[in-house]
Amino acid sequence: MTDDLDRLLSAAADGELSEHDRLHLAVLLRDDPAARDRYAEYMLLDALLRWEKPAAPAAEPAPRRHVLRVAGWAVAAGLLVGVGAVTLLAIPGREVLAKPDVVDDLADWNLAIADAPTAADRGARFGEQARPLSDALARADLSADDRRLAVALFENARALSAGDHPLVVAELLDEMSGRLLDWAAAHPDAKRAAAGERHYLRFVEGSMGHVHKVLAGPPDEGKKKQAAKVAERVAERAEARAAKKEAARGEKKVGK
């Protein structure tokens, strides 16, 4: 890398600044307008890449560690008849496999279905992954709370695949964001709780994106009013979350 600022910009974008790096970066930015401009341009590019989430080249897709794209592309939707909550709630037998990220996969799947451009695509995305994910869920070694959430995510995916209007998608994502937040708040494992919070934020983003679609879409006063209500619920939940975080900070300080 050509200079200190280059190294610091790279570390800042990748979330890898040390305490010393932060101080160093602050000194460079305080004294040098050109450094501030380079910083602003670089971090803005990083922000846009985060927003865009560029796809790997289509001809040779990158391998993913998740089960989502590993198998089952050819499973026809017809095979899914009978795969439901009863199967998913079954107590795992001796072939139990530890699969802590099945909840993550289910959350990704929900969002992929919600993002599909047409109702037919939503159905196809559901059909492609329903069988492998239901199998993974049945085998996964999950706590009762994790399993309940996973089943809810599976059923939500099914509902999303049948959603025929952005408002329906917005409402389904909003409702699930609330469940994810509750799950994260009660989870004993800090890493899984953090994952739940991340999923919550992504579901909120998805829900608000569909609210915007309704508002920018054809004139339909009833649906637009309902979309505004969804946004209101999102805001209320976020406000409650912020208040809880603040209270927790207060308790932590008192405990010190």
Partner: peptide, 11 residues
């Protein structure tokens, strides 16, 4: 492209 995709994927 693959590197950028892997770096900026969720998580």
């Amino acid at each position: 492209r693959r590197l950028v995709a892997a770096r900026y994927a969720d998580g």
